[in-house]
Amino acid sequence: MIRFEQVAKRYPGGREALSELSMSMEKGEMAFLTGHSGAGKSTLLKLIALIERPTRGQVIINGQNTNGVSRRKIPAYRRQIGIVFQDHKLLYDRTVMDNVGLPLVVQGIGHREVGRRVRAALDQVGLLGKEKLFPVALSTGEQQRVGIARAVVSKPDLLIADEPTGNLDPDLSLEIMSLFQRFNDVGVTLLIASHDLALVERLGKRRIILESGRLKQGSQPGGFHR
């Protein structure tokens, strides 16, 4: 599902965020991406979402080499990936319904179908009945779940999350993580960046540890099966 081959990313200014990174994830796998801040976690996720391009090497997602995805093809490419952000990135002037439905509206799916799928997604994150509310009326944990509902509403095969529990207390974090776990149970591939080591350890999933832009000794570089 995800394959990094000798990937390096150098930002303008000379800082090398990733160097010679190779790793892979199978379809249906769930893994945590950990490491110190500045170790390259966000960069790795950005390369998957094509927010950044690799300086060297290749990133292959779902059998597609991202180097071959032109600027114009990026929207179609991103539609197959669900992204969850630390700061939710919700639109605060729109209702929960409109926020979650946006990925479907973007794809030109009809009004009724959007409503149906949004309710299904909200049901999955336990927010059914809050469609009409605005995000500010929700708690941080609920807002993050709206963000997750938006990421899964178009049923992507791959879900990436950048510090999804960064702003949440331990209980809420665990709740969010078990939510992710349930998506994984139905076959979604998940890559979650987190520096909450205690929580990650408790979930007992595969860990990809980055250190100064390289894979740290001891983490499993790929081919790992649950």
Binding site: I51, P75, L90, L102
Partner: peptide, 8 residues
């Protein structure tokens, strides 16, 4: 946000 979720 729209760009991130694949809006053309």
């Amino acid at each position: 946000v729209c760009k991130l979720i694949g809006a053309s």
